[in-house]
Design a protein around this nucleic acid. Structure first.
Lengths: 167, 167
DNA sequence: ACTTCAGGCTAACACTGTTAGCGAAGGAGA
DNA sequence: TCTCCTTCGCTAACAGTGTTAGCCTGAAGT
């Protein structure tokens, strides 16, 4: 029987977190992960079900840490918005894994996604439709910035200032 | 010598366009592409350099068709915004290939990316910073919608109405 | 008729996630 | 202590990915 909750499993989770942050989503392969733990890739499957379990775990950690960062930020909409950008740029791979591949809803703790969504709604203080637009605005800015879609000489600080003013 | 501009190359381009729209980015493999042309995968390399050439070609077509759709829309900001959403939802895979993987700038026609960027700036009629925020807003809305991040019961028509009002 | 070459082909390589099955180490019970 | 069973490593392998090397055939040019 596979050990799905032992100390090795915890080490796998920790190593995958490091690997993601260092090498990005594309660098997160089962063999690279196994190398880091000085075991062979197939041995990972004695402790976890499949790669999606690792993905889901990282998505959950991403959502959680993101939520904490937003909560910690100052109360003003401006502070929250800058915290959004700041966290995403500081953790681009963690941000990527939560937004640019399908969210494995069945395998992350219930309520986690809603918790983050509600957090954004609280920030705006208005209705859900407005909150979604604000969320989309911040997500779009970060996504385009990380993807390098804005020209190098773009003044993104100023762009964010304008964006916050639009809210 | 490889034939890099013959009729077969044109057929490869056409087939890759179909394949992308039918099966999505994940379904666009060299072997699947070759199957559609009734040849074997390695034979593709007699006509093209590598897969990135196909990706770049599709990104260029995406940008071009997107630009046309936006230009054709009514002059109002609202009409333009709805055209943005409409085109992206009607061509999700083409939209995806232009925004969710790195844009192969060195391999798409010069000026194409700037053309689309300028188009968005024209829509807002304001400065670049404002235009970028508007672009991010629309991109974010579409990206989150395609990724299924909004709840099923979300009224996205209304969300877009609010978003347009924010512009 | 001879040569050249475009454009197919198969075999293979390095990579991906994953499964089957083997073997050694350690603990539990007689 | 002997035996048994579980845990947890391992290698070999499979199907998939993009890609390269090298072979062969048919057609076109001189």
């Amino acid at each position: 029987m596979a050990n799905t909750d032992g100390p090795t499993r915890e080490r796998i989770r920790a190593a995958s977190y490091e690997l993601l942050n260092e090498k990005g989503l594309a660098g997160l392969s089962m063999r690279a992960l196994a190398d880091r733990l000085h075991i062979k890739a197939p041995s990972l499957y004695k402790h976890i079900e499949d790669k999606d379990e690792i993905i889901a775990d990282l998505q959950a950690r991403g959502l959680q840490e993101f939520g904490i960062a937003i909560r910690r930020a100052g109360k003003s909409r401006r502070a929250k918005a800058l915290a959004y950008r700041g966290w995403a740029l500081a953790n681009p791979h963690l941000y990527e894994i939560t937004v640019s591949i399908p969210l494995l809803r069945d395998r992350i703790p219930a309520g986690l996604e809603d918790g983050v969504t509600n957090l954004i709604i609280e920030i705006t203080g208005k209705d859900h439709e407005h909150a979604r637009a604000v969320w989309a605005l911040m997500h779009g800015l970060v996504d385009l910035e990380i993807a390098g879609r804005f020209p190098k000489d773009a003044d993104l600080d100023l762009t964010w200032k304008r964006a916050v003013a639009m809210i």
